[in-house]
Computed example of a mutant assay.
Amino acid sequence: MSGETDLKALLAGLQPELDLAIYVFLTVDGEYGDHAGLQPLAAFREREGMTLIVPEDKAMARIEPGTPRFRRLTLTVHSSLEAVGLTAAVAGKLADHGISANVVAAYYHDHIFVGAADADRALQLLGDSWGAGPQ
């Protein structure tokens, strides 16, 4: 199954779920496997280095004071990677309320990383926005 592509159906079925964990973004040298001890949730290779999204408790030795902390909202609707407008709608809704959205699209779901202090408000906004309550 390739997932939903209809934007109205996607927005009606968002059903965002808030992960209890706190995450940080790190940049590291080397390969993904070199950092398995950090238990990264996700990795992305950029020209400047490897970006890892890591549970805060696994990264304490590598982060500096003031490093932003994030919580993950998972949009439980099964969205297609070819769907048009979902990322823009969600990021736009959060931006309208001063909340940054760092979006990671995976095969089945989109995951939005928001500042830890904004997470509960973001969950409420996305749950209320299009008629689907938060989980």
Rank of each mutant, 00 (worst) to 15 (best):
Ala132Val: 13
Asp57Cys: 11
Ala88Tyr: 05
Phe113Ala: 02
Val54Tyr: 00
Leu10Cys: 05
Ala91Phe: 06
Val24Ser: 04
Gln15Leu: 14
Ser79Phe: 08
Asp128Phe: 08
Arg71Val: 11
His109Trp: 03
Leu10Thr: 00
Ser80Phe: 06
Glu82Ser: 15
Ile22Tyr: 13
Ile63Phe: 02
Asp19Met: 07
Leu86Phe: 06
Lys8Tyr: 03
Met1Asp: 12
Leu75Gly: 04
Ser2Arg: 13
Ser100Trp: 07
Leu20Trp: 07
His35Leu: 07
Asp128Gln: 15
Ser129Gln: 06
His109Glu: 02
Arg69Cys: 12
Arg47Pro: 07
Ala83Gly: 11
Leu94Cys: 11
Ser79Met: 15
Val104Arg: 00
Ala59Cys: 10
Ala21Ser: 14
His78Glu: 15
Val54Pro: 01
Val114Met: 02
Arg62Ile: 04
Gly85Trp: 07
Ala105Val: 13
Arg62Met: 15
Gly37Phe: 15
Thr67Val: 12
Thr76Asn: 12
Pro55His: 03
Asp96Tyr: 07
Phe70His: 12
Leu10Pro: 04
Val114Phe: 02
Pro65Met: 04
Gln39Met: 11
Ser80Lys: 08
Gly49Cys: 15
Leu26Ile: 06
Val24Met: 03
Val104Phe: 12
Gln39Val: 12
Thr76Arg: 15
Pro134Ala: 12
Gly3His: 01
Ala116Glu: 07
Glu46Gln: 10
Gly133His: 13
Glu64Gly: 11
Val103Gln: 03
Leu11Thr: 00
Pro55Ala: 06
Thr74Phe: 08
Gly127Ile: 05
Asp96Ile: 11
Met50Phe: 12
Tyr32Pro: 07
Val84Thr: 14
Ala83Thr: 05
Ala119Met: 06
Tyr107Glu: 03
Ala89Thr: 07
Pro68Glu: 09
Leu75Glu: 01
Ala36Gly: 09
Val103Met: 14
Ala42His: 06
Asp120Met: 12
Leu38Tyr: 01
Leu38Val: 05
Asp57Phe: 11
Pro40Asp: 04
Leu125Tyr: 02
Gly92Arg: 11
Ala119Gln: 00
Gly127His: 00
Ala106Pro: 10
Glu31Lys: 14
Gly92Ile: 11
Glu31Gly: 09
Pro40Lys: 00
Gly98Arg: 07
Gly33Ile: 08
Ile53Gln: 02
Ala36Leu: 14
Glu31Asn: 13
Gly133Asn: 13
Met60Ile: 13
Val104Gly: 03
Asp110Tyr: 01
Arg62Gly: 06
Tyr108Lys: 10
Leu20Ile: 09
Gly115Ile: 04
Pro55Arg: 03
